[in-house]
Design a protein around this nucleic acid. Structure first.
Length: 260
DNA sequence: AATCTATCCAACCGCACTGAA
DNA sequence: ATTCAGTGCGGTTGGATAGAT
């Protein structure tokens, strides 16, 4: 509303964060908690805007963040949730609390989108069906099929929780796949995060599936629905009319299912 | 070895939303 | 009802790196 961005202030530093800056930020948050970001630069002396501090914390320094390869289950879950929810990365990320919305978004844009396109190209019949108008009656049947397929796949994705089952497909052999062993500073944020694990574990859960079984998820990051809610909605056979809107994209699941 | 091209991802930007004043 | 500070979110950018030529 006409308010200039905080980052336009003179003397605000941009670009990659240094370990020193991270330590300062983490120390401050350890003491004061992740709130009132506006005061963080002032109180810490960091030459960063509040937004940059918040982003750095939520995306990299926050404890419980998993880095490196996405598992097959995570990949499946992302594909199905994206089909259901669209590009609502924050909401999608709420079902993978070890991943950040930025991480999921990047993974989608760099891997999954291409993968889906590839499969689409290799499967013209399905692709054509998606883009051709569907006669009345057939649409309802296809929707029901799509729902069933999506239910099945998401059920599998939610049931299986094997953290060692990482992606071994060719796409994961790209340069970034070695990120878990990056010699660069990025990986060292894990060390900083680890320092905070004990502190944060008493504040919030770190696993979405655990959350779904025990309690609603912390919605402090905004717009995050408890998993149990969407599970109820998703597995509810009597889907209401207003909910059907979000299922229009489900047809891509046909393609997605063929990917695994 | 040098250069070009493609890929990845951390960080930034701008808009939207919320709640307090 | 209106304004505005604070925050969240999605889209985009740009630097670093790897691979190809």
């Amino acid at each position: 509303m006409g308010r200039p961005p905080c980052c336009e202030k003179f003397g605000v530093k941009k670009g990659p964060w240094t370990p020193e800056e991270d330590i300062i930020l983490v120390s401050y948050i350890q003491e004061h908690g992740p709130a009132n970001w506006r005061s963080v630069p002032t109180n810490t002396g960091l030459l960063r805007c509040s937004k940059s501090c918040r982003l750095r914390w939520t995306n990299y320094l926050r404890p419980g963040i998993k880095r490196g390869n996405f598992s097959v289950q995570e990949e499946k879950l992302i594909i199905h949730l994206q089909a259901l929810l669209g590009n609502r990365w924050a909401t999608i990320a709420s079902y993978l609390p070890e991943r950040t919305d930025n991480d999921i978004k990047n993974f989608w844009n760099t891997h999954l989108k291409k993968k889906l396109q590839k499969v689409n190209n290799n499967n013209n019949t399905i692709s054509n069906n998606i883009h051709q108008p569907i006669p009345k009656g057939q649409w309802e049947r296809r929707l029901q099929t799509d729902i069933n397929l999506a239910k099945q796949a998401l059920n599998e994705a939610l049931r299986i929780n094997n953290p060692t089952d990482t992606i071994t497909s060719p796409t994961s052999t790209s340069p970034s796949s070695s990120s878990s062993s990056y010699p660069t500073y990025a990986s060292s944020t894990e060390n900083i995060s680890r320092l905070l694990e004990g502190w944060m574990s008493s504040r919030k859960p770190t696993n979405s599936l655990e959350v779904s079984e025990t309690e609603s998820k912390d919605t402090s990051s905004g717009g995050q629905e408890p998993l149990s809610l969407i599970e109820t909605w998703f597995f509810d056979d009597g889907l209401g009319g207003e909910n059907n809107e979000g299922l229009f994209d489900l047809s891509v699941d046909n393609v997605a299912c063929g990917m695994f």
